[in-house]
Amino acid sequence: MSSYHKKITLTQLQQSLGRVHLKERKPLQHRLCPVCKKGKLVTLNTFTARGPPGYWMEKLRKQSNK
């Protein structure tokens, strides 16, 4: 949809269907250590949507085969 139609259509849909109210959830604890639940995790590297490069995956395979 174009931006113009989104403004009009979404407003009309919200009026006819009502607004959606989501339940509140606990905040994510993705920065806590999964083992001790106390230590803080630090991001060292991030990858694009394509994932890690091939040489990186090869290093991981070699490490897990030890």
Rank of each mutant, 00 (worst) to 15 (best):
L28W: 00
L60Q: 13
P27I: 09
P34H: 05
N45Y: 06
N65M: 11
S64V: 12
K6Y: 08
G54Q: 13
K66H: 10
E24D: 10
K7S: 10
K40T: 15
K62F: 09
L10Q: 14
R61T: 06
T48M: 02
V20N: 05
N65Y: 01
L13P: 00
K37D: 03
G54P: 07
T46R: 15
L41I: 14
P27R: 10
K40S: 08
C36P: 07
K40A: 05
G54S: 13
K40R: 15
L41C: 02
T48K: 14
K26M: 11
L13K: 14
T11M: 10
Q29M: 05
P53R: 10
Q63P: 00
T46I: 11
T48S: 14
K37I: 00
L17P: 00
G39H: 03
S3K: 15
G18T: 03
K38I: 04
Q12D: 05
L41Q: 02
Q15Y: 02
R61C: 03
R19W: 01
F47K: 05
Q14H: 12
R61H: 12
P27F: 02
C33M: 04
S3C: 05
V42R: 13
Q15D: 09
F47Y: 15
M1K: 08
R19D: 07
H5I: 12
I8V: 15
C33S: 04
L44R: 13
K59L: 15
Q29H: 04
L17M: 12
L32Q: 11
L17E: 06
Q63E: 11
P34S: 02
T9V: 13
E58I: 09
Q12A: 14
P34D: 01
Q14C: 02
S2E: 06
G39P: 02
K26I: 07
V35E: 06
M1R: 07
R61K: 15
T9C: 06
L10S: 09
T48W: 06
K40M: 10
Q63K: 14
N45M: 11
T11I: 09
Q29T: 12
N65L: 13
G51I: 06
